[in-house]
Design a protein around this nucleic acid. Structure first.
Length: 323
DNA sequence: ACCACCACCTGAGTGC
DNA sequence: TGCACTCAGGTGGTGG
């Protein structure tokens, strides 16, 4: 479930189960699910087993789960997860192994039932057909701007116990904030974009400039902002970029409300359920259908070994750059 | 520093 | 049926 809304659906679904939970058992079924981990599977399992998870945090398409220190004075660490193109994290108890199960974690939730008895352990199953996703244990470093590192749900940012709040896994530190992050800096985004000569869609997809946007939401946002994907970013006005940012936020927000975009069973929440935003797509995958705004037939074009979808009238091609 | 391209994978669909 | 080919929601490293 790879773009921001889908990853946020997963993060929010995991949060109540993992916050304060203790990792009882780690089973790495396929080592390829650890490409982001610096070390062998045994190292991953050893460092994770017995640890307590503090929370579930997300920036862009990356999620991480800060771990309480194993011993006082230890460097702060987190379990990092990226879903890649086809990853899922499913929650359950004793479920049958999915075909592409890569890692299974068994955790002891922090909560108790209404009689005060501990809840039964729960399984987190990391499933990933194409193995572009992976997990890792990574050290945490302070955020450069000193603000909370990402979206963490119901967390008190002033709580001194939440020291992890202003830290980020080292391998995620180069990722820019996403447009739904309160600490996202609009002016910084606009300044960065206006230094890029490549097309605006490449800039939207550059996770070091703005994170969380992938091929679906780039196309949807550009259609909403009436911009062609090849418009050179350094030739766009500040107000055009501001307007684009507004549309990005609207699109991501609506997709989140709908539980994300699911084209097939590949993209589901932690309970295996689909999202419904695919019913509201204006251009992505809508080639041959009428533009919802002007009725012109939507076209699909090759773009970076993938596709771009647009309305030829609402989003006319830019004139080639003169020199 | 930027920029375009390629590799990393599995499976579904299409045309011959 | 089988085979070759294309395509799919992402990221990172590589050269220029």
């Amino acid at each position: 479930m790879p773009e921001l809304p889908e990853v946020e659906v997963v993060r929010a679904g995991l949060e109540p189960a993992v916050s304060g939970a203790r990792v009882l058992h780690v089973d790495v079924v396929d080592d390829r699910a650890l490409t982001r981990h610096d070390g062998p599977a045994e190292d991953f399992a050893e460092r994770l087993t017995g640890r307590t998870i503090a929370a579930a945090v997300r920036r862009g398409k990356f999620m991480w789960f800060p771990l309480q220190p194993a011993r006082e004075g230890d460097r702060p660490e987190a379990l990092v997860a990226h879903l890649g193109m086809s990853g899922q994290i499913l929650l359950g108890r004793g479920r049958e192994a999915a075909k592409h199960r890569r890692i299974l974690l068994e955790v002891q939730p922090a909560g108790t039932d209404r009689d005060g008895a501990p809840e039964p352990p729960v399984e987190l199953e990391f499933v990933d057909q194409r193995t572009f996703g992976s997990m890792a244990i990574d050290e945490m470093v302070p955020t450069v701007d000193g603000a909370p590192a990402g979206s963490a749900g119901h967390v008190d940012d002033t709580d001194p116990d939440a020291a992890w709040r202003r830290s980020i896994p080292k391998q995620v530190s180069h990722i820019a904030r996403d447009p739904l992050d309160p600490a996202f800096d609009d002016d910084r985004f606009i300044a960065m974009a206006r230094k890029r000569s490549s097309g605006i869609k490449r800039v939207l997809l550059d996770q070091g400039v703005v994170s969380g946007i992938g091929n679906i939401y780039a196309d949807e946002s550009l259609w909403a902002a009436k911009l062609h994907h090849d418009r050179p970013a350094d030739r766009l006005g500040r107000s055009e970029l501001r307007g684009l940012l507004d549309e990005v936020r609207l699109v991501l927000g609506r997709a989140l409300e709908d539980g994300g975009t699911s084209f097939d069973a590949q993209y589901v929440n932690v309970n295996g359920q689909s999202g419904y935003f695919s019913q509201r797509l204006s251009v992505y995958g809508q080639q041959g259908k009428p533009c919802p705004r002007c009725g012109t037939t939507i076209v699909r074009e090759a773009f970076m070994n993938r596709s771009s979808h647009r309305c030829p009238v609402c989003q006319p091609a830019p004139r080639p750059r003169r020199r």
